[in-house]
Design a protein around this nucleic acid. Sequence first.
RNA 1: GGGGCUGUAGUAUAGCUUGGUUUAGUAUACGUGCCUAGGGCGCACGGGACCCCGGUUCAAAUCCGGGCAGCCCCA
Length: 492
Amino acid sequence: MVKESSGKEKKITFNIKKEENFSEWFSEIIKKAELADIRYNVKGFVVFMPWAVRCMEKVYDLLEEELQSTGHEPAWFPSVIPERNFKLEGEHIKGFSPQVFWVTHGADTKLDERMALRPTSETAMYQMYALWIQGYTDLPFKMYQRAQVWRYETKATRPFIRSREFYWIEGHDCFATEEEAEKQVLEDIRVTEKVMHKKLGVPFLALRRPEWDKFPGAVYTIGSDSLMPDGKVIQQPSTHFLGQGFAKVFNIKFTDKDGKERYVWQTCYGPAVSRILASVISIHGDDNGLVLPYNVAPIQVLIVPIYTTKNKKGIMKKAEKIKKDLIEKDIRVKIDDSEKRPGEKFFFWEMKGVPFRIEIGEKEVKTGKLTLFLRDVKKRATIHEKKIAEEIKKEGEAFDERLRKKADIWFKTRIIDCKSKEELERALQGKKIARCDFCSISKEGEKCAEVVEKQLLASVRGVRHDKFEKASGKCIFCGRPAKHVVYIAKSY
RNA sequence: GGGGCUGUAGUAUAGCUUGGUUUAGUAUACGUGCCUAGGGCGCACGGGACCCCGGUUCAAAUCCGGGCAGCCCCA
């Protein structure tokens, strides 16, 4: 609450500024915009509320559309994995077992074999793949599922960013050859680019992770790192080239054209929709609340009728007509005809992040020119009643493009080339991602990576996978000739 | 994994230091009625809370122990 000069108390939407204290801003927006209710009494588990679920449903739709159009079939696998399956792949179990929730009892009876509540589904899916894949005509085999997974996180949990239960999609593909599998990795990155960057306006770097930071059981891992306003990167969809490691332990074989039996080559891909929403909220949101891209907003256009008791009927009729015109063109629209004052409605829906508001009052009914409010720039424009749906669609595209361009510029200016440890330190303090010459992301570079972790409290995120960056100098940590240009940042 | 802080109506809080003064106060939200309507409107009335378990005490929101949950910092 702040006192205005008039002496009247005026509510302000946000007490916390995003740029000054991101952490508290994030907590506040989760509560105020009714995205999640954190009062469910289990650590790391929250209730996802309708507004967030509707956004995440849209993210699911966008991702599934891409996956299906690139030849993936949907399936739903069980959420429990028998321990002996889970333990088949040595590296995998080593990496994941500290994070597994185990089901040990059925009612009061102790189970003969405990079951893992899936933290990821390789070991659930691949035993079935072994049954389904017989010959080369079964390949490529591309399947995905939308699923909840559970991980007993020991780091601090935060809704959307890191929780012990999260919602994601996992794609698991099998190929006859190594080349095809590696092409799939690139396709996965393109899907991430198309959905997360093009549609949702979240910029990221596709980075090949260092040897010591890859997915347990993978040959290599490409992680997409996007940046949060506090200068920490957050891992978004990652894609893994699994080679034949899992195929060999799960016995996924096919008879090739030449009649010989061969193991398949595998990849997997894991976009977490709850985490993608965390980035969308954080990158586009401002001190008035959420700013949702037109593509995901549960309500794209809010109509606020502004009437008095006398002219209510005529104004509502106009509002209903506009709503009908928009719905016909599949635009998600709502009329707020509650008994609140217009001002209160404005504040509320701006906080919720609705991209457009159409105001309809006496003036608009008379002239046929409607008032259109744009959430991102917080400005009013005029829009004609005729061809309203076409106009809104055009505005919607422009809206998302503005968000994306703004985010891109912000992201670009936060990647800094560093020539020394001191420069690197300064970059990290300034909430930036550092780019520098580094000895190597294979085993021999691990010592230098430990220096980064211990002294700078940051991590070596990896090298660009989508484009080649040539190292020219020496590793800024050990002085040996640098084989790689790496990105270093603090991370979630 | 280590440390710190916190837990009072839906939400934000007062009270806790120094146990009794409170029928646990306030704002907002909610409900009812009236009034209003182009940026959080006004009035009246109403219902709603001390995280859980144990201990100390004549007496616990307040002190102590444990649990659960949340926030922050560090690994």
